[in-house]
């Protein structure tokens, strides 16, 4: 177990030190070959690295796009997975079964391939534009825009979210729904007042995992996004490899981490609430 902590925790601590300008120890080599390193000037290090980052318009553009993509994709994923869960839970026909089986497919497709498949599907001479052209329409090329990144993020995140939400919905006993029906509530109201609250823990977990995943994603924006602005995941890699500015790269990672940590707190709360309810039951 200590090994696990060491594996993940140690590099993170080390890189936090780097962003604060500590260039000694194991950070020595990277500090030597990297450019634009701001060294520590206080006992706790320096904020200069972060200051430089936030005054860079390029970073701010990236940050903005990252947030927009994350929020939009997460909302779409949630809405779709809710729809899927409701179809599977309430409809129960052949088509619902098939949908339930198909929807998990992207989970088993390597991200690189997902990205590439979506690229060819929505790209300049892809399926979408082909169909449009045959119908005499001029469809936009979505690749290299934010929209392709959103489509890709939704595509890759949907299986996990809908599995979670569906299992949440499936665990609601029929009796509770029947009782509400018996009380004369229309389906829309039952969904809103009975099913959503009862599946709220799973919904929150789905939201966190989806948003955290998209926040730090690399492959999808790398293949599908524009060059500038791009998402921070890609930019970190650029700064690290192409521009050889490790301090900024890692600092960006910490900016993402701060956002992700915020989401993570919501997640932990939801979990604690979930187990508290169970303990009471």
């Amino acid at each position: 177990m200590l090994l696990i902590i060491g594996f993940i925790g140690f590099p993170i601590a080390l890189s936090l030190a780097l962003t604060l300008g500590f260039t000694g120890g194991l950070n020595q080599i990277i500090a030597l070959i990297g450019q634009g390193i701001r060294p520590a000037d206080h006992w706790w290090g320096t904020m200069a690295g972060y200051q430089a980052l936030f005054s860079d318009p390029r970073f701010n553009g990236d940050l903005q796009q990252t947030i927009i993509v994350t929020v939009v994709s997460t909302i779409v994923v949630l809405v779709l997975s809710l729809a899927i869960a409701l179809i599977v839970r309430l409809h129960r026909g052949r088509i619902a079964q098939l949908l339930g089986a198909i929807i998990v497919v992207p989970m088993f497709v390597p991200v690189v391939i997902s990205a590439w498949a979506i690229h060819t599907f929505y790209g300049g001479d892809g399926f979408v534009r082909s169909v449009a052209a045959l119908l005499g329409l001029q469809a936009p090329t979505l690749t290299s825009t934010m929209w392709a990144v959103i489509i890709g993020s939704v595509w890759t995140s949907l299986p996990f979210a809908s599995l979670l939400v569906t299992s949440g919905m499936q665990s609601i006993p029929d009796a509770l729904i029947d009782a509400a029906r018996d009380a004369g509530a229309p389906m829309s109201r039952i969904v809103r007042t009975i099913m959503l609250p009862l599946a709220s823990t799973q919904l929150i977990i789905a939201t966190t995992f989806t948003s955290i995943g998209i926040l730090g994603s690399f492959t999808i924006p790398y293949f599908l996004g524009s060059n500038q602005p791009t998402m921070l995941g890609v930019e970190i890699s650029n700064f690290l490899n192409a521009y050889n500015r490790p301090q900024q790269a890692v600092a960006m990672a910490f900016v993402i981490f701060v956002f992700a940590a915020g989401i993570a707190i919501a997640y932990v709360r939801a979990n604690l609430r979930g187990s508290a309810t169970e303990a009471r039951a």
Binding site: I8, G9, P11, I12, L14, S15, L18, I212, L215, G216, F218, L232, G233, I236, S237, L240, P246, A249, V250, M252, A253, F254, I256, F257, A260, A261, I263, A264
Partner: peptide, 12 residues
């Protein structure tokens, strides 16, 4: 730790 973006982890 899992919420920490992978690419940042790899950088360090």
């Amino acid at each position: 730790a899992n919420a920490f973006p992978k690419i940042g982890l790899f950088a360090s």
